[in-house]
C-alpha cells in the first residue's frame, strides 16, 4: 500500500495575534508547527501502515523552511518526505495549491492519501478535496475512523452533525481526517535523530511537470486582499426598574425599539 500524507507548515496560530495597525498576522518570533489536523493525518497513516503494511510518504508544499514540518513527520515515523518548493508556487490559492500537490501525489504514486480536514491558518478545508478532484479519486472528508479495509474499498466513519456516517469508499481514495482519528504520537529520540539525517526529496514546478498557468498566482482565481479583525461593536446598558414587571416592560420596549422584536 502506497500511502501519502499531505501536511502544511503553519504559524502556531493558537498564539498568533493580528497586528491592529497593519491588519496582518504578527509572525515575528512565532514558531512554525505542523498543522495540528495534518499531524493527526500522519498519525492515522502510521497506524494504517502498522496494521496493514505499506510505505508512508509525507508531502508538503511551501518555502524551503517547510522542511522542518516534514522532518517532524519523519520523526513520527514516515518513511520518506517530499517537499515541492518553487518561487512559481508563490501566491497560490487552494485551487492552485491542490493542483500542484496532486501532481506531486501522482508522481509519488498513491493508493491512499491522508490529509487533515483543514489548516488552522486558512481554515478553508478545500485543499484535500481539491487534490482528490484533480486526481479523480474518491474523497471522504471529516473522517474519524477507518473501520474496515478491503481489497478495493474502505469502510470509514465520517463525522456529521449529531453522529457519524458509515461510508464505503472505493480505493484509491483521499481521506481528510478529524482530530478524533487519533492523538499524534510523540516522536522517539531515535526517530527524531533519524529524521534529521534523512534526505528530503525536493521537487520544483518543473519536476512535477506543472504548467505555469496552473500554479502560483497565475493558477489562482482567488486572491487574499486583506486580513483584518472584524469590528465588533458592543453597547451595553443596565436596565433598572422598581419591579420585575416594569423591568420586563422596559426590556420589551428596548428590544422593539432596536427592531429585534
Amino acid at each position: 500500500m502506497r500511502i501519502v500524507v499531505c501536511v502544511k507548515q503553519v504559524p502556531d496560530t493558537t498564539e498568533v495575534k493580528i497586528d491592529p495597525v497593519k491588519n496582518t498576522l504578527i509572525r515575528d518570533g512565532v514558531p512554525s508547527i505542523v498543522n495540528p489536523f495534518d499531524e493527526c493525518a500522519v498519525e492515522a497513516a502510521l497506524r494504517f501502515r502498522e496494521e496493514h503494511g505499506g510505505r508512508v510518504t509525507a508531502l508538503s508544499m511551501g518555502p524551503p523552511q517547510a522542511e522542518t514540518a516534514l522532518r517532524k513527520c519523519l520523526a513520527m515515523g514516515a518513511d520518506a518526505a517530499v517537499l515541492i518548493s518553487d518561487r512559481a508556487f508563490a501566491g497560490a490559492d487552494t485551487l492552485a495549491t491542490s493542483f500542484a500537490l496532486a501532481r506531486a501525489v501522482a508522481k509519488i504514486g498513491a493508493d491512499l492519501i491522508f490529509c487533515g480536514k483543514m489548516a488552522i491558518d486558512g481554515d478553508t478545508a478545500q485543499v484535500g478535496p481539491g487534490i482528490a478532484e484533480h486526481l479523480s479519486l474518491t474523497q471522504v472528508t471529516n473522517v474519524q475512523k477507518i473501520k474496515e479495509v478491503h481489497a478495493d474499498h474502505l469502510l470509514v466513519e465520517r463525522v456529521c452533525d449529531g453522529g457519524y456516517e458509515l461510508v464505503r469508499a472505493k480505493t484509491p481514495a483521499l481521506l481528510a481526517v478529524e482530530k478524533t482519528v487519533g492523538e499524534p504520537r510523540y516522536p522517539s529520540v531515535r526517530g527524531s535523530v533519524l529524521a534529521q539525517q534523512t534526505e528530503i526529496t525536493k521537487w520544483s514546478a518543473a519536476d512535477i511537470e506543472a504548467p505555469e498557468e496552473k500554479i502560483g498566482l497565475n493558477g489562482s482565481p482567488t486572491q487574499v486582499m486583506q486580513i483584518f479583525t472584524p469590528e465588533t461593536q458592543l453597547h451595553s446598558e443596565m436596565l433598572e426598574a422598581p419591579s420585575e414587571d416594569a423591568l420586563c416592560d422596559l426590556l420589551i420596549g428596548k428590544l422593539r425599539q432596536a427592531e429585534i422584536l
Partner: peptide, 21 residues
Amino acid sequence: AVMNEDRYAPELRLAFRNVES
C-alpha cells in the same frame, strides 16, 4: 531508557511534548 528504548512514563512524555511545543 528514554533515548534508546523510548520507554518512560506517559506523564513525562506530556512534559516533554509541552516543552517542545
